[in-house]
């Protein structure tokens, strides 16, 4: 089997600018990293003559400074799963999500940038990065950065312009002396199947247990991963109880737009989304130190 019938040349740019230059200059050129999305369903019959592989462009790293954790775009899902940094960061939700990401073979090749750029609504990584309020750095004619909330327009569509590539994901470190808890959840047909519904939450509370900040994200229940801003607002300023959480999630149908596919019906997704949302909020609240 030839993975791309009309492919003529394969390039190994040394850095992101070099990659962008090749994409602009070579006809019918496409970016590739792990290839697990592009070669399986990402081409959609498009003709491709040139592939630009960025896995040797210096974008595989995880590092931490005083304010941010920075993840290079070609860091693999396995590297995220196993990075010691993420074992103790944010209740390890990034490790956990990476560990639920299909199979070992796919995790070893697939990259964080590729997963975000592929812009599939079932991404296990995107909801976590939304709960962590990450920014996505992009290189093109100029360098840009986008908050991940708002990065997705619809299925397979992001705000990135042609010839732009993701270079880095930046996660702000929470301020010290702040009590924040995090949670991640994924419901799938099997452990390794893509999500029917997934989501993540981060809840910050004050000394009295009142919610000061809340982020709740859900995947696979709309055109793309979403933040549930209305539910977040319902939680602010409150000490949470099971009843308050249930009431806050009652009108979740307004925030989501689930579709029926081979894995689940829209109705099932809607019901599960409400349960998952409540569970995420409760878990994150308790992890922050709140009592329910």
């Amino acid at each position: 089997m030839q993975y791309i019938r009309d492919l003529k040349k394969y390039y190994w740019p040394k850095g992101p600018q070099d990659a962008v230059r090749l994409l602009m200059q070579e006809p019918l050129a496409e970016i590739i990293a792990g290839g697990t999305e592009l070669l399986v369903s990402g081409l959609k019959g498009r003709e491709v003559n040139n592939l630009v592989d960025i896995t040797r462009a210096g974008l595989s790293y995880v590092k931490k400074d005083k304010k941010y954790i920075k993840i290079g775009a070609t860091t693999t899902i396995s590297e995220l799963q196993n990075a010691p940094l993420f074992k103790d960061f944010a209740c390890s939700i990034l490790s956990k999500a990476a560990g639920k990401f299909v199979s070992v073979q796919i995790r070893n090749a697939a990259t964080i940038g590729g997963n975000l750029g592929a812009a599939m609504p079932s991404s296990d990584i995107a909801p976590v990065l939304m709960a962590l309020d990450a920014k996505i750095h992009v290189c093109g004619k100029e360098n840009k950065e986008f908050p991940i909330n708002g990065f997705y327009i619809s299925k397979r569509k992001t705000v990135m312009a042609p010839y732009e590539i993701i270079t880095e994901i930046e996660i702000p470190l929470p301020a010290e002396n702040v009590k924040t808890g995090y949670a991640f959840e994924k419901i799938g047909r099997t452990e390794m199947d893509i999500a029917i519904v997934n989501g993540a939450a981060s809840i910050t509370i004050d000394a009295s247990g009142e919610v000061k900040n809340a982020r709740l994200s859900l995947g696979s229940v709309a055109q793309n991963t979403i933040r549930c801003l209305e539910i977040e607002n319902n939680l602010l300023g409150k000490k949470l109880t099971k009843e308050i959480i249930a009431a806050s999630c009652e009108n979740i149908a307004k925030s989501i737009d689930p579709k029926t596919d081979v894995r689940a019906s829209a109705k099932y997704r809607g019901t599960v989304a409400r349960v998952i949302a409540a569970r995420l909020i409760e878990e994150a609240y308790i992890k922050a130190g709140g009592k329910i």
């Binding site: 089997m1 993975y3 394969y10 590739i32 290839g35 697990t36 070669l39 399986v40 592939l51 592989d53 896995t55 396995s78 199979s103 070992v104 073979q105 796919i106 070893n108 090749a109």
Partner: peptide, 26 residues
């Protein structure tokens, strides 16, 4: 041929990959 079944698994630099969706040039 879609990286799902794992029958084509090989180890590359210590890590398993699905060789059916792995460009040989890599």
């Amino acid at each position: 041929e879609t990286g799902e079944c794992g029958a084509c698994t090989v180890i590359v630099n210590g890590l398993t990959v699905n060789s059916c969706i792995y460009p040989a040039v890599k």
